[in-house]
Design a binder for these strands. Structure first.
Length: 933
RNA sequence: GGGUGCUUAGCUCAGCUGGGAGAGCAUCGCCCUUACAAGGCGAAUGUCGGGGGUUCGAAUCCCUCAGCACCCACCA
């Protein structure tokens, strides 16, 4: 083995082998095991792997590998999402680069072009997932536009339609004037922006419809929509205006007469208390219009220009140009009373960032309320559990106030709506044109035209947990893996995806789609900022794995910016943050970092120092393995090599491993990946490496040691290492496989699947015995060694210098221990000699450490500086005194002694006892040394 | 306008049902000791956001204030 761990040399090699040999395909469950399934949240075909994916996929892979090792029939379903709008935009941008566009290409050729793009450059992410070590079953990879999944989509649409849960209707919807499509409420992101409130004068008309000379003042943030006003509303109780209800105003610029109505939607406190009503371009006004049977005038074209229903001078103007023009015209007519600053919520499309328009169109909707009921109950009943649990509140909140879902999109890339129109405009829904025709009782000669719209991408995503398993067929996969075990996802798509999967799953399979929903936080940069291309602070997980030089990183971050003027500041920040670029940390270190940072529910700040620390951990493990192999390879190991006996240290580390096994299982069951990672980190570094490997040297380097003991220690070194590798494998698949390949033959391990650690059984609780006696003994050894080390460290005595040690007040038990653990003490403490002080013998001038009642003395002659030792003792005594004071006060408190549980009081008394004894010892020791001076 | 989360060492964060605050990184000493300098050994570090309450006892439970972040919502 190389002296230094080199991830590059091992990672890609192993993934290829795993993949080729089909280890990731589900196998039959081992006896007593069950099944386990995770559906990957299908990444967009347009996407590439970002830190959020890497984080999420690491957690999923950890769960999947763990269950696979435990013998469950395990499936991690691979696939990707056609991502309608996102993908269409990518290809359209490409066309634009070629001086073309989709309209001139035509629908059919455009869709072909998207498929072609998908074949050539889609799915970059699956290669990146492989780099991450993700053990997805690629043989079952699905795409949401595959024939099978498309069939499921049609099936669901038709069945929902049959039940009246899908309907077509003319409604105001959120309209993106750039994409020229409707989008759902969820795709609207409203943000506060600074704008104005225009106060417009609307002249009141007299009974004959002539100007009366009076006027009302309405306040609006969108003056251009006034062309579509069909009423002015006031609050019916508003003393200022109630007498005007029923009169008419003459709508400026149009000459139309519109009524003044009373509606308590109007807030008399806001603006002027008079509200212009534009049912065609505002959701609230639409509702008011419905209540008062107002006409509805659509003044916009689909790309948000002024259309034909507006007065001639404004036609063809963009909405914002029209705004300026209208305001100017009103001003010229003396109808602009005031313009004030106003911050308002502006709705924008999440894809285009464009300001959306409420727009009246024919769309398809899902009637959600009937589906939401059972979905709420499933979570209430606990059939589905959110982790952490408080996300259930968010879910309930949304589900209880849910509105119908607009599912039609006026784009070309997606599942085309399975509805056909006959020449009379009647709609016929069916799984195919033939079925639609049959159902409509239409003969073959009636021409039918399929609906032009496609479905919202999330419609097919909602079916993902069962459509990927073959639904509507009753497949073996469906029976084995549905309901799936856990969904791992971010909180940002609870509404988009999680809720809809639950509704559709329950509706069409009668069962929940998953048992647990693990919601993780957002990966932010080290300053807590959201990572985004425009901020120039994104990290590419692959760059953390392979490393990247500074210039390439700068180039990558400043290329293709929406706002090129940001390039300079991004470059500066990048050079400051990564003066030497990013070193190659390897996949395992990156994965371990994600796991260690995955404490529940909170966002994580991604800090390169953490990755470096865990890369070092990999190196530590690597070198521990080197040590073990150096000391075991070629040695007599097998059961036939001779008897083995276990030392105290061997028993101790096995007992500690047993505790670690329990902890790992417990933490992973609770989705505490961070605690799992920490438990393993501590066991490997602090116990196995820092203590056990050192203890083993006492046995292995001692030529006089018993052969059985040496065999026992060699075997334990291997056995514990093997356990560590298996426990770590779900987190760090590559390094563990690489090392395990060398360790397993020495142990004769491998069982049914000798060729890979991926299929080895996971160490199970109870597999190893606890050994409390050994733990107590080794605790004593460690305290002995630590006492010496402290003296050595604080006295600046070189670690290599062997120390003579004198023991005072050693009881028989301690003498026994010194005797039986002598080899450990000599080796770890670097002792030159040990001598017991006889009763009554004067102790030498020495530095002191206490171990129970026994004093460990390191004679000062030539080694120790008197004043330094006095200082050291003073520091220790001060600390003891502080603790003693607190303990005394506590015990002096009657109500504590009376009311606290006896065991707590006893503990406090014992503490008082031992603290005061220790203090006495140190005080006496200090006096002796001081006297010498 | 509703709702959620966060505030613990210089930094990033653990701390489960209340019983002497921990880790990693950074810092400071001593060491290239035969697995590892991507290392070893040792040291230092905290009014657990402020205030109040419950309790023998609060980082932990309750109330309140402050700051930060996020989500939802139709006030022009």
């Amino acid at each position: 083995m190389d002296k230094t761990y080199n991830p590059r040399a091992i990672e890609q090699h192993w993934y290829r082998i795993w993949d080729e040999r089909g280890y990731f395909a589900p196998r039959p469950a081992r006896p007593g095991a069950g099944s386990f399934c995770i559906m990957i949240p299908p990444p967009n075909v347009t996407g590439s792997l970002h830190m959020g994916h890497a984080f999420q996929d690491t957690l999923m892979d950890t769960l999947v590998r763990y269950h696979r090792m435990r013998g469950d029939a395990t499936l991690w379903q691979a696939g990707s999402d056609h991502a309608g709008i996102a993908t269409q935009m990518v290809v359209e941008r490409q066309l634009a680069g070629e001086g073309s566009d989709r309209v001139s290409l035509g629908r059919e050729r455009f869709v072909e072009r998207v498929w072609q793009w998908k074949a050539e450059s889609g799915n970059a992410i699956s290669g990146q997932l492989r780099r991450l070590g993700a053990s997805l079953d690629w043989s079952r990879e699905r795409f949401t536009m595959d024939e099978g999944l498309s069939r499921a989509v049609r099936e669901v649409f038709v069945r929902l339609h049959e039940e009246g849960l899908v309907y077509r209707g003319k409604r105001l919807v959120n309209w993106d004037p750039v994409l020229k499509t409707a989008i759902s409420d969820l795709e609207v992101v409203s943000e506060e922006e600074r704008g104005h409130l225009w106060h417009l004068r609307y002249p009141l008309a007299d009974a004959d419809g002539e100007p009366s000379g009076e006027y009302l003042v309405v306040a609006t943030t969108r003056p251009e929509t006034m062309l579509g006003d069909t009423a002015v509303a006031v609050h019916p109780e508003d003393e200022r205006y109630r007498h005007l209800i029923g009169r008419r105003v003459c709508l400026p610029l149009t000459g139309r007469l519109i009524p003044v109505i009373g509606d308590d939607y109007v807030d008399p406190e806001f603006g002027t208390g008079c509200l212009k009503i534009t049912p065609g371009h505002d959701f609230n006004d639409y509702a008011v219009g419905q209540r008062h049977s107002l006409p509805l005038i659509n003044v916009f074209t689909p790309d948000a220009r002024i259309g034909d229903r507006a007065p001639e001078p404004y036609r063809g103007l963009d909405r914002f140009d029209a705004r300026e023009r209208i305001v100017e015209d009103l001003r010229a007519q003396g109808l602009l009373e005031a313009v004030t600053d106003h911050t308002l919520m502006v709705p924008r499309g999440d894809r285009t960032g464009e300001i959306l328009e409420p727009y009246l169109t024919d769309q398809w909707f899902v009637r959600v309320k009937p589906l939401a009921g059972p979905a709420i109950e499933a979570v209430e009943r606990g059939d589905i559990r959110f982790v952490p649990g408080n996300w259930a509140r968010t879910y309930f909140e949304w589900m209880r106030n849910i509105e119908d879902w607009c599912i039609s999109r006026q784009i070309w890339w997606g599942h085309r709506i399975p509805a056909w129109y006959d020449p009379d405009g009647n709609v016929h829904v069916g799984r195919s044109e033939a079925e639609a025709r049959r159902r409509g009782g239409l003969t073959d000669d009636v021409p039918l035209e399929q609906d032009h719209d496609v479905l919202d991408t999330w419609f097919s995503s909602a079916l993902w947990p069962f459509s990927t398993l073959g639904w509507p067929e009753d497949t073996q996969a469906l029976r084995t893996f549905y309901p799936t075990s856990v969904l791992v996802t971010g909180f940002d798509i609870i509404f988009f995806w999680v809720a809809r999967m639950i509704m559709m799953g329950l509706k069409f399979t009668g069962e929940v789609p998953f048992r647990d929903v693990y919601i993780h936080g957002l990966v932010r940069d080290s300053d807590g900022q959201k990572m985004s291309k425009s901020k120039g602070n994104v990290l590419d997980p692959i760059d953390l794995i392979d490393g990247i030089d500074l210039e390439s990183l700068v180039a990558k971050r400043t290329r293709g910016l929406m706002q090129p003027q940001m390039a300079r500041s991004i470059e500066k920040a990048t050079r400051r943050h990564f003066p030497h670029g990013i070193p190659a940390f390897g996949t395992d270190a990156l994965r371990f970092t994600f796991a260690a940072l995955a404490s529940t529910g909170r966002d994580i700040r991604f800090d390169l120092n953490r990755v470096e620390g865990y890369r070092n951990f990999c190196n530590k493990l690597w070198n521990a393995a080197r040590y073990v192999l150096m000391n075991t390879d070629g040695q007599d190991l097998g059961a036939d090599a001779g008897e083995r006996s276990l030392s105290q240290a061997d028993r101790w580390i096995l007992s500690r491993l047993s505790r670690t096994i329990d902890a790992v299982h417990e933490h992973i069951a609770a989705y505490r990946f961070d605690l799992m990672a920490h438990a393993l980190y501590e066991f490997v570094w602090d116990e196995y490496c820092d203590w056990y490997l050192e203890l083993s040297k006492a046995t292995l380097h001692d030529d006089g040691a018993d052969a059985r003991a040496r065999r026992g220690t060699r075997h334990t070194l291997l056995r514990v290492l093997d356990g560590i590798l298996r426990l770590l494998h779900p987190l760090m698949p590559f390094i563990t496989e690489e090392i395990w390949q060398r360790v397993a033959p020495l142990l004769g391990a491998g069982g049914d699947a000798p060729e890979t650690i991926c299929l080895q059984p996971c160490p199970e609780p109870g597999e190893l015995a606890r050994d409390d006696a050994a733990e107590t003994e080794m605790q004593w050894v460690m305290e002995f060694v630590l006492g010496l080390r402290r003296i050595r460290g604080e006295m600046d005595i070189a670690p290599g210098r062997a120390l003579p040690v004198v023991l005072q007040d050693a009881d028989p038990r301690s003498r026994e221990r010194v005797d039986s653990h002598r080899a450990y003490l000599d080796s770890l403490g670097r002792l030159e000699s040990i001598r017991f002080l006889d009763a009554g013998e004067t102790p030498p001038q020495a530095a002191t450490a206490l171990l129970g009642r026994m004093k460990i003395l390191v004679p000062m002659a030539g080694l120790i500086d008197t004043s330094a030792e006095l200082e050291r003792l003073d520091r220790q005594m001060a600390k003891l005194e502080q603790n003693l004071g607190r303990t005394r006060r506590k015990l002096a408190n009657d109500s504590f002694v009376q009311k606290a549980p006896a065991e707590v009081v006893d503990k406090e008394r014992a503490r008082l006892d031992s603290l005061s004894r220790s203090l006495d010892e140190l005080r006496a020791q200090r006096e002796r040394i001081a006297a010498l001076d």
